[in-house]
């Protein structure tokens, strides 16, 4: 754990950090991220386009839902990303609270708006699916309510980290909020098992055969991979921009000090 002092001086190339600390060095992060970004972008674009076009035009209609089942190829990946994004946010919060990595704070600030966007997408497409199939835009069952809580947790984090004059205090408060809110993730996951809900239980589970036909499973998995890559590419680009913006602020401050 002797890598922590690297953080005090930004770029010191050639010094081998250890484990996570290596990536906490902003200069190293920028160089690595710039190399990863184009590949991630290409992956995101190809997989998302393939999954969505397959789902919309080539996957079969459901025997009773008809073409409304195609909403699944948006709704389910968005729902997975809403939860996975929050798990990523919680990981950043943990690293930020315990190891005080500034990069984790920046990443957390950039994850929460994207996560909120994907959660809103999940809620909106769920509504558009629920109206023609269930007969209701919205019901207050345990699954829908716990996902709405997730959306509010994201919004809370967005507001909280920007609410303090001292950014470090805001980030610390945000990290605590995120970790407390992480209890919502298992509630979302198991809400359809623990309580009777209008929302159906999971179609794809870790154990057991997926209860959808193989020609519907493939586009769903590809769309989910595509959305995952899209989420990662957006967060990576935003975090790179945030690191650069912080360096710009530091340079401007140093310049102002030198002038005075």
């Amino acid at each position: 754990m002797d890598g922590s002092h690297i953080l005090t001086n930004a770029p010191r190339p050639g010094r081998p950090g250890r484990s996570l600390h290596r990536f906490a060095n902003p200069g190293r992060f920028l160089r690595l991220a710039a190399r990863v970004q184009p590949w991630l972008n290409a992956l995101a674009l190809i997989l998302t386009a393939t999954g969505l076009i397959w789902g919309l035009f080539f996957a079969p209609a459901d025997w009773q839902q008809g073409d409304a089942v195609r909403i699944m190829y948006i709704h389910v990946p968005a729902a997975w990303l809403a939860s996975a994004g929050y798990a990523g946010l919680a990981a950043c919060a943990l690293v930020s609270l315990i190891w005080r990595h500034p990069l984790a704070d920046l990443a957390a600030m950039e994850i929460s708006p994207v996560g909120a966007g994907f959660t809103a997408l999940c809620l909106a497409t769920g509504s558009l699916w629920g109206k023609p199939m269930w007969g209701a835009w919205w019901v207050w069952d345990a699954r829908l309510t716990s996902v709405l809580v997730l959306f509010f947790l994201y919004l809370g984090h967005i507001v909280l980290v920007r609410a303090f004059d001292d950014p470090v205090r805001g980030q610390r408060a945000g990290a605590i909020l995120v970790l407390v809110g992480a209890i919502d993730l298992p509630i979302i996951k198991f809400s359809v098992v623990w309580w009777n809900t209008l929302h159906q239980p999971d179609t794809i589970t870790l154990l057991g055969a997926p209860s959808l036909y193989i020609t519907m499973l493939w586009p769903l998995l590809i769309a989910a991979l595509g959305y995952s890559a899209t989420f990662a590419a957006i967060v990576l680009a935003r975090t790179r921009a945030a690191v650069m913006e912080r360096r710009i602020r530091a340079l401007l401050a140093a310049r102002a000090e030198a002038l005075s």
Partner: peptide
């Protein structure tokens, strides 16, 4: 159910695309 499907796909493309475009512009500016 065309209106519901069309609205879902419009949102499903527009939301990620808007985030991606905003990130791209912000990164270029920075």
């Amino acid at each position: 159910h065309l209106p519901y499907v069309a609205a879902s796909y419009a949102l499903g493309v527009a939301v990620p695309a808007a985030f991606a475009l905003a990130a791209f512009l912000r990164l270029g500016l920075a």
